[in-house]
């Protein structure tokens, strides 16, 4: 009888402690959670099954993404939106990217420079030689072998007719406020940075999406995923 009572008490105590820790995980400001190792462990425990069920299909079981689909690597510390703070990751998971949710990240897309087809952007279309010049300019920015004359023309297109600077910034290092990728870091969201990959992006454009999870996952699981992803991305290899 005593053993049963003790077991019941222990189970109730464990449940209460678990509920308290979940509550603490939510009540602690997101960006401070990584300082609490106990909360990070709890987040990892809660996040693992949720990641496998909901995120791994696009970002891969190893979290390294899939550049053939534009699914970003989540552990390379290269953040498309924000600088990798837990609160920023949590916002992205909660509302997604171009997800249809009114609070989603949807400030910019990569337009097609082939046709003037976007109601959202007034762009100047680019000819094949102009696109080739821009590729050479990007090669130069990245520190790869490039054609000097073509790159000079590409730089002019980047800053003027193409208006690429408007999203990717004058130094081509992108803008994390609107999800415009850094073009100078040799990390490619789509493909591997080959001439054809870059041309394809200019010809067809890109507009990747991530679902909003606010109505599918509980707040504590979303917080746990954000903390766990932050932890994985910042963890030093042992």
């Amino acid at each position: 009888m005593t053993v049963i009572c003790l077991a019941v008490c222990a189970a109730i105590g464990a449940n209460l402690f678990d509920a308290h820790m979940r509550d603490l995980l939510l009540r602690t400001p997101g960006d401070e959670v990584p300082n609490h190792i106990g909360l990070v462990r709890l987040a990892d425990k809660l996040a693992a099954p949720a990641y496998a069920a909901n995120c791994a299909a696009c970002h891969g079981a190893d979290m390294r993404g899939d550049s053939s689909r534009g699914a970003p690597n989540l552990v390379d510390q290269d953040w498309l939106y924000g600088s990798g703070l837990v609160s920023e990751i949590e916002h992205t998971i909660t509302y997604g990217i171009r997800s249809g949710n009114p609070k989603t990240h949807n400030l910019a897309v990569m337009p097609s420079f082939l046709h003037q087809q976007s109601a959202r952007y007034k762009i100047n279309t680019l000819s094949p030689p102009e696109m080739s010049d821009l590729v050479q300019f990007l090669f130069q920015v990245e520190g790869r072998p490039f054609d000097r004359a073509a790159s000079a023309r590409g730089a002019d297109l980047y800053a003027n007719k193409g208006a690429c600077y408007d999203c990717h910034a004058a130094d081509a290092r992108g803008d994390q406020a609107i999800g415009a990728p850094n073009l100078a870091d040799n990390i490619w969201l789509y493909g591997h940075g080959s001439r054809d990959d870059i041309l394809r992006a200019m010809i067809y454009g890109h507009a990747g999406v991530c679902p909003a999870w606010i109505h599918r996952l509980s707040p504590v699981v979303i917080r746990a995923l954000a903390v766990s992803l932050h932890d994985r991305a910042t963890r030093r290899p042992s």
Partner: peptide, 19 residues
């Protein structure tokens, strides 16, 4: 009013981390 919305709003308005 979600805490995560509040944090985002604070960071967006002032351009610095919430802390």
């Amino acid at each position: 009013i979600l805490t995560s919305d509040f944090v985002s709003q604070v960071e967006t308005t002032y351009g610095v981390p919430f802390a």
